[in-house]
């Protein structure tokens, strides 16, 4: 099976890259003294008090590769160290804060894709007409916006000017109490999903209210990016021969654009979605900080400012692995979507 061997081949190629990534991260840590490095191995608050023991146990004065071996085996056991800013092991911190970020991603991703594709198609179909110019300027402006500034401005208007209409944080105070109480079952720790599963309307509305601004802030830059890409991709597609054939068949312009042109135009957009993921990962750090939306981005930014090395590096490692896997998924998806990339012979 072509696909299976392709996946296996790609997974095998992943290993040297992941190896390099881990060596890189580890190499950074070696710039620190053994005492500072100890935080990478601590699992509990108790252990923090006994640094020399840590140094001895994990051999923090051994040669590079020995230490690397120790560290990587620790990583595989889930020990990424201790994050001082939140007083819990890094691994726990990641899983603790991940649901919030996932919540943002769940709402932002479809918004980005749908808006980007839709606007890009419309702009290309109405090329050089008012709609095209407006969306183009909008896209460039959106692409130039500093995410943090947009977030601040939105808060200023919708939280300040409109008196708390769309507040920061994940939930308002009373709702937060409710959600953490015994009356509310936490299935996923994603507030909106849990609210639905608990059939609790007020919590759902409250969570949504808190999501609107962060999701918009996160999306704007990416919508601009996808929109521009979709537009140029559509223009290229509309210039191809099969479009003339489609028109010569008597198909309506709507079908020509939406069926024939768009399918081809989506292909480059899909290949780029890996980068959109990276852009979102970046955006999440800033957005969560501004809105005090306690997800992994918020935690990472806090860790960086407080020089919590284990936290920052753990976050970087987590992201790298995730990013590499996402790219693999995107590549596989690409082979499904573009028939030309599938392997096959030529029929005579």
């Amino acid at each position: 099976m072509e696909l299976r061997s392709y996946i296996i081949r790609r997974l095998l190629l992943l290993i040297p890259v992941l190896f390099g990534v881990t060596v890189f991260i580890f190499g950074i840590t070696m710039l620190f003294s053994p005492i500072e490095r100890a935080s990478l191995y601590i699992r509990s608050a108790r252990q923090m008090g006994d640094i020399p023991a840590i140094i001895a146990t994990y051999g923090l004065d051994q040669p590079f590769w020995v230490q690397y071996g120790t560290w990587i085996s620790q990583v595989f056991h889930g020990n990424l160290g201790w994050s001082s800013v939140v007083n819990m092991p890094v691994w726990d911190a990641i899983w603790n804060f991940l649901p919030a970020t996932l919540e943002l991603a769940i709402f932002a991703t479809p918004l980005i894709i749908l808006m980007g594709v839709f606007l890009g198609t419309r702009a290309a179909a109405h090329k050089d007409r008012p709609l095209d110019h407006v969306t183009r300027v909008g896209a460039i402006a959106g692409w130039s916006l500093p995410t943090f500034w947009l977030g601040l401005m939105l808060l200023m208007v919708f939280y300040g000017l409109f008196r708390g209409l769309l507040p920061p944080d994940r939930l308002s105070f009373p709702m937060n109490l409710l959600v953490n109480s015994a009356d509310f079952v936490r299935y996923t720790r994603i507030n909106t999903i849990d609210a639905i599963l608990n059939l609790n309307g007020p919590v759902l509305l409250d969570a949504l209210r808190h999501l609107i601004l962060p999701v918009i802030t996160l999306s704007v830059v990416n919508v601009a990016f996808i929109m521009r890409l979709m537009r140029s991709s559509m223009l290229e597609s509309l210039g191809k021969g099969y479009i003339l054939t489609a028109r010569a068949k008597g198909l309506s312009e709507r079908v020509v654009v939406n069926k024939h042109a768009r399918r081809n135009a989506l292909i480059p957009v899909i290949t780029v979605s890996g980068y959109v993921f990276a852009a979102m990962a970046n955006g999440v750090v800033i957005t969560e900080t501004i809105f005090t939306f306690k997800g992994i981005g918020w935690w990472a930014a806090l860790a960086a400012t407080r020089l919590d090395i284990a936290g920052v590096l753990g976050f970087a490692l987590f992201n790298a692995v995730l990013f590499v896997l996402v790219n693999l998924v995107v590549d596989i998806l690409y082979t499904r979507v573009d028939p030309r990339v599938r392997l096959g012979g030529v029929m005579q």
Binding site: G20, N282, L307, I309, F323
Partner: peptide, 25 residues
């Protein structure tokens, strides 16, 4: 190419954050 792969495996801002944290802001 492999070296660039390693660097490109990190989302840009996040890697930059890590580096700045290590060197000192």
């Amino acid at each position: 190419m492999r070296i660039t792969d390693i660097f490109l495996a990190f989302p840009a801002l996040i890697l930059a954050m890590a580096i700045v944290t290590v060197i000192g802001p």
